[in-house]
Design a protein around this nucleic acid. Structure first.
Lengths: 194, 194
DNA sequence: CCGATATTTCAGTAAATTCTGAAAGTTCAG
DNA sequence: CTGAACTTTCAGAATTTACTGAAATATCGG
């Protein structure tokens, strides 16, 4: 591996972290390298810097492309493929979330919907379905929230995240301001709550 | 594998999904089984239902315990260990997020802080550090948001998620209400923005 | 179309992970 | 203390995944 020490530390770390995700070490390293690089890199560049085989790099890049995590570019008068990551880190986050949703949440939701359609054949199955319904509803809430905030431009998203739960205060304030105190509508808490 | 069809479908799916995470198939299956089960199960129950070896189950349960994802219980007059998942699915989500943060984000933040302390020895390293700072700041924003909303009780958290980006509207409303129009403070957008 | 350059595919190998059975360890009632 | 019931550990086997080099395929300037 032929990298400045600072870069190498990061690349090795991401290689290891890759394993905690479904991603393998080399793919993690390639991505880390591209992320840190000012200029787009071609496959041979990556081979030299990481010290892995050409074919391994080829496969790794293919996987990163399948994840939409790298951009393929060309330089004039050079027919090699150059790869880079988006300059905007928020774009990276958005892609990551989008792709993980597509691969993990969506298929699970499909399965849950299917299984919830079936008639339970026993008390055990009935309880299992109940649990699956809880999971289904949870995922629905989370993906709904995601679909919603995902549309915000980055500035507003950052605003929202910076506020965190302080939003809660503002909500309460809103309630006090716009709802006639004591009226039914002002009761935000479920009355049957203990 | 000796399970009602509906349960089996779910358990198999989670086994496969487990691989997309860092978790292996058996661990995913054990968890799915416990999640769906009304009653706590002991190791032998799990062996029978999943058809894997006793030692495999023992290791899987140990891993799930390390993740704080299962609760160990005992029945009076029975010295076998019984395992279950929390009844409250939100508790499960909280644990999952907490543990993943601990294993993935925290070590990465430590590394980023260390590397950002060092003096860059070249233009390449300077640019790499710049990128690492972006990642560092991103993670800081996200973990800050998480630390904040994580403290909310579930009811309020659900409220917040249900609102999604509609919060934005309320923020704007708040601005219009409480800031003198035309004053400096009412300018929320960065003036140098295009 | 040719040949040079670049990329992809793939079969075989290497490495890592998962799983098992056997043995060792632990706990507790009697 | 003993031994039955239960759990954990661990070395090796089985399986899966990652990686490589060689061959095949693609692309393009001339």
């Amino acid at each position: 591996m032929n990298l400045p020490p600072l870069v190498q530390t990061f690349v090795l770390h991401f290689g290891e972290m890759g394993s905690r995700w479904g991603i393998n070490r080399t793919v993690g390293q390639i991505y880390a390298l591209l992320y840190l690089s000012k200029e787009p890199l071609n496959a041979e560049d990556i081979v030299e810097r990481l010290g892995v085989s050409r074919s391994n790099v080829s496969m790794g890049l293919k996987e990163l492309q399948a994840w939409n995590l790298v951009r393929l570019q060309h330089k004039p008068g050079d027919r090699r493929d150059y790869f880079s990551t988006p300059d905007d880190i928020w774009q990276i986050v958005r892609t990551l979330v989008e792709e993980r949703k597509k691969r993990e949440i969506d298929p699970t939701m499909t399965l849950l919907r299917e299984v919830l359609m079936q008639e339970p054949a026993s008390a055990e199955e009935r309880h299992a379905q109940e649990r699956m319904r809880e999971m289904h509803d949870l995922f629905e809430l989370l993906t709904g929230w995601y679909a919603d905030v995902q549309r915000l431009d980055t500035e507003r998203l950052v605003q929202l995240l910076t506020l965190g739960s302080k939003v809660q205060k503002i909500l309460e304030m809103k309630d006090r301001l716009f709802v006639v105190p004591g009226s039914k509508k002002s009761r935000r808490d479920d009355p049957k709550e203990k």
